[in-house]
Simulated scan of single mutants.
Amino acid sequence: MSTPLDDTQLYDITAAMKQLKLSRSVIYELIRTGRLPSVKEGRARRFTANGLREYIALLEKEAQEVA
């Protein structure tokens, strides 16, 4: 990850894109499919540090299953 995640902060789409190094459309697809947990703040989507970590853990688990 580019910078350490702060557990007291909510991350917006742009910050999640930078942390995960994924495009905006991929982030929205992950939200839609439920693979990337998010919360709604008004009309905006936000991500917790734990939610981003859960997604990374999911990727690691899937990689181990394939190997």
Results as ranks from 00 to 15, higher is better:
residue 43 R to V: 03
residue 37 P to L: 04
residue 52 L to H: 04
residue 31 I to V: 15
residue 29 E to Q: 12
residue 55 Y to V: 03
residue 62 E to Y: 07
residue 39 V to L: 15
residue 22 L to Q: 09
residue 64 Q to S: 12
residue 40 K to W: 09
residue 32 R to I: 01
residue 13 I to S: 03
residue 25 S to W: 03
residue 31 I to Q: 02
residue 28 Y to M: 14
residue 31 I to P: 00
residue 49 A to Q: 07
residue 20 L to D: 02
residue 60 E to T: 12
residue 23 S to G: 15
residue 59 L to W: 07
residue 10 L to D: 08
residue 15 A to M: 05
residue 66 V to I: 08
residue 58 L to K: 10
residue 43 R to K: 14
residue 18 K to H: 12
residue 61 K to T: 12
residue 15 A to S: 13
residue 54 E to Q: 12
residue 7 D to H: 11
residue 64 Q to T: 12
residue 24 R to A: 07
residue 63 A to I: 02
residue 26 V to P: 02
residue 56 I to E: 14
residue 11 Y to I: 04
residue 63 A to Q: 14
residue 37 P to Y: 05
residue 58 L to M: 11
residue 25 S to H: 06
residue 65 E to Y: 11
residue 11 Y to H: 10
residue 11 Y to F: 15
residue 37 P to A: 06
residue 16 A to Q: 00
residue 32 R to A: 15
residue 40 K to I: 03
residue 61 K to F: 06
residue 47 F to E: 00
residue 6 D to Y: 12
residue 42 G to E: 06
residue 11 Y to N: 04
residue 18 K to I: 08
residue 47 F to V: 00
residue 33 T to A: 09
residue 9 Q to K: 15
residue 59 L to F: 02
residue 32 R to T: 09
residue 34 G to N: 06
residue 56 I to M: 12
residue 20 L to G: 02
residue 7 D to A: 12
residue 11 Y to G: 01
residue 5 L to M: 10
residue 27 I to D: 01
residue 58 L to T: 10
residue 49 A to N: 11
residue 58 L to C: 04
residue 34 G to C: 03
residue 61 K to W: 03
residue 47 F to W: 00
residue 48 T to C: 08
residue 22 L to K: 12
residue 28 Y to I: 06
residue 14 T to V: 05
residue 40 K to A: 10
residue 64 Q to D: 13
residue 19 Q to A: 11
residue 49 A to M: 07
residue 61 K to E: 14
residue 34 G to V: 02
residue 26 V to S: 13
residue 21 K to P: 02
residue 23 S to K: 13
residue 45 R to M: 03
residue 64 Q to Y: 08
residue 41 E to T: 13
residue 23 S to R: 13
residue 38 S to C: 15
residue 54 E to P: 04
residue 11 Y to C: 06
residue 55 Y to N: 13
residue 13 I to H: 01
residue 18 K to M: 08
residue 25 S to F: 08
residue 43 R to T: 13
residue 21 K to V: 06
residue 38 S to F: 09
residue 57 A to L: 11
residue 42 G to P: 15
residue 12 D to W: 05
residue 39 V to A: 10
residue 8 T to E: 14
residue 36 L to A: 00
residue 3 T to V: 15
residue 2 S to E: 15
residue 6 D to A: 12
residue 8 T to C: 06
residue 60 E to P: 04
residue 23 S to N: 07
residue 61 K to G: 05
residue 45 R to N: 14
residue 13 I to L: 14
residue 4 P to K: 08
residue 3 T to Q: 11
residue 37 P to K: 05
residue 59 L to V: 11
residue 30 L to W: 01
residue 63 A to F: 09
residue 63 A to T: 12
residue 23 S to M: 07
residue 64 Q to P: 01
residue 44 A to Y: 05
residue 2 S to L: 14
residue 19 Q to C: 08
residue 40 K to Y: 11
residue 26 V to Y: 14
residue 2 S to R: 12
residue 54 E to T: 09
residue 51 G to I: 03
residue 42 G to Y: 05
residue 58 L to Y: 11
residue 53 R to G: 05
residue 13 I to P: 00
